[in-house]
Computed example of a mutant assay.
Amino acid sequence: MGVTKGVADRVGQVERNAELRTGSVLMALAGVGFVGYGIVFLAMNFAGSGFELGVASLDGAARADLDPTVAFYIGHLHVATAAFIISTGIAVAALSWYGVRRRQRWAWATATVAAVVGLAIALPMHWVGGFEHDWVTHLGPIYLAAGAFVIGVVLSHRGMQTP
């Protein structure tokens, strides 16, 4: 009976290690995805003709149709937003890759809270109306990264559990 329990414990530990590895990698990849989205957001500000990814115009008005001061102010906000998306992505990726993989619960909690707070504040505004945009292009990449992140959070949390 002792041998069977020992084998079962070992199998359980191997499964938890695999979940931890897979979960932390998914969390880190999601962080890299956030960085990529932020870089595209930043590039669109300087090289794009629209407002942001999936938003070519606002109520039929292109960026070039705006008062230059208003257009510059919107650009300023986009640069700041991109900076925070990129910096959050870097933090999430680093915490996940270097901390979560080593079972450091503080790193898991910090990565999780950082991403959840950012997404919980930013995403609901897109659902209250106010302007039309291409949902798939505009939010698809972030939803894909957020989905991978959530799966990673769940797997890595289960992988951190002790027998």
Score class of each variant (00 low, 15 high):
78 H>G: 14
44 M>A: 09
54 G>Q: 12
64 A>F: 10
58 L>W: 14
153 V>G: 05
137 T>Y: 02
66 L>K: 07
82 A>N: 01
90 I>S: 08
19 E>K: 14
87 S>K: 00
23 G>R: 04
9 D>C: 00
78 H>V: 05
5 K>E: 00
97 W>S: 04
24 S>G: 11
97 W>Y: 14
44 M>I: 15
90 I>E: 08
73 Y>G: 10
24 S>A: 14
36 G>Q: 01
163 P>I: 01
143 Y>R: 04
71 A>W: 05
92 V>T: 01
82 A>T: 05
3 V>W: 01
127 W>D: 07
15 E>I: 13
7 V>F: 03
157 H>P: 06
142 I>N: 13
17 N>W: 08
105 R>P: 00
34 F>N: 04
143 Y>A: 07
18 A>Q: 09
118 G>L: 10
119 L>N: 11
70 V>M: 10
86 I>G: 03
13 Q>F: 02
146 A>P: 05
21 R>S: 11
57 S>K: 11
26 L>K: 03
3 V>F: 00
31 G>S: 02
96 S>M: 02
3 V>T: 01
20 L>D: 01
72 F>R: 15
23 G>I: 11
31 G>M: 00
116 V>S: 13
126 H>Q: 05
134 D>Q: 12
42 L>G: 06
26 L>Y: 07
95 L>G: 10
32 V>M: 08
30 A>V: 02
39 I>M: 12
134 D>E: 08
133 H>L: 04
91 A>S: 13
2 G>Q: 00
120 A>S: 15
154 V>M: 08
88 T>V: 14
63 R>A: 02
10 R>E: 04
70 V>P: 07
133 H>P: 09
13 Q>T: 09
62 A>S: 08
9 D>E: 13
83 A>L: 14
77 L>H: 14
6 G>Y: 09
25 V>G: 03
53 L>S: 06
27 M>F: 11
87 S>R: 01
132 E>K: 03
55 V>T: 13
145 A>K: 05
155 L>T: 09
17 N>P: 11
12 G>S: 04
150 V>W: 06
143 Y>Q: 04
26 L>E: 04
98 Y>M: 15
44 M>N: 15
63 R>G: 03
70 V>R: 03
91 A>M: 15
158 R>H: 13
89 G>R: 00
69 T>L: 08
46 F>D: 04
86 I>A: 07
57 S>H: 03
43 A>W: 11
70 V>W: 10
94 A>W: 13
57 S>M: 11
32 V>F: 15
